[in-house]
Computed example of a mutant assay.
Amino acid sequence: MSGSEASEKTGCQGASECVAACEDLAAVFRALGHPARLAIVKQLATRKEACCGEIVNHLPLAQSTVSQHLQVLKDAGLLICDTRGRNCHYLLNREKLDQSETLSQGFWNALRSREEDMVGGELTAEKPQT
């Protein structure tokens, strides 16, 4: 596959852009790589916003643990914190989630297209027999 074909299939314009996209995607995967953080994101997807106490009430975790998980999600850009007085109200950063979905889909599509390009080549993975 030529460089232009690779960039067409992955959405990257060059090697450095592809590395940056992979780094962004890896940061999101790391942030979502814990069941509690997935539960928080799933919970926030069903409502407009929630403060830490509301999130704690739906999880079997201590408030301090939930706060740490919220910070990881916030640092990854997946959450927006709207501070009102002494309370933080968290909401999903839909723009970042959409961007992450696009990057993830591009990543999986690139893997799939490379696999298809390898059909008939020496490194073709054997398909399971049915």
Rank of each mutant, 00 (worst) to 15 (best):
M1E: 09
M1R: 12
S2V: 00
G3Y: 05
S4M: 07
E8M: 08
K9W: 04
K9C: 01
T10Y: 06
C12H: 06
Q13V: 09
G14D: 15
A15F: 13
C18I: 03
A20I: 01
A21E: 15
D24E: 09
L25S: 10
L25G: 07
L25F: 13
A27I: 02
V28W: 02
V28I: 15
F29E: 12
A31K: 11
L32C: 15
G33P: 07
H34I: 02
P35R: 10
A36S: 12
R37A: 08
R37G: 08
L38D: 06
A39T: 06
I40L: 11
I40A: 07
V41E: 12
V41T: 13
Q43G: 03
Q43R: 06
Q43P: 00
L44R: 08
A45F: 04
A45R: 14
T46M: 04
R47D: 02
R47Q: 11
K48W: 00
E49P: 00
E49I: 00
A50C: 09
A50H: 07
A50K: 10
C51E: 11
G53V: 01
E54R: 04
E54P: 01
V56E: 11
V56L: 03
V56M: 04
N57S: 09
P60E: 13
P60C: 05
L61E: 10
L61C: 05
L61P: 02
A62W: 02
Q63R: 12
Q63N: 05
T65N: 13
V66N: 07
S67V: 02
L70D: 10
L70R: 11
L70G: 10
L70M: 11
Q71A: 08
Q71R: 14
V72Q: 14
D75W: 03
L79T: 10
L79Q: 14
L79H: 14
I80V: 15
C81F: 02
D82F: 01
T83F: 04
T83M: 11
N87T: 05
E95V: 09
E95N: 13
K96G: 02
D98L: 12
Q99D: 15
S100N: 12
L103S: 11
S104Y: 12
S104C: 11
S104T: 10
Q105E: 11
G106L: 03
G106H: 05
F107K: 07
W108E: 13
W108Q: 14
N109A: 09
N109T: 08
L111I: 08
R112A: 07
R112Q: 13
E115Y: 04
E115D: 13
M118W: 08
M118E: 15
V119K: 15
G121N: 09
L123T: 10
L123A: 12
L123I: 04
T124P: 00
A125H: 14
A125G: 10
E126A: 04
E126K: 08
Q129A: 02
Q129N: 03
T130C: 03
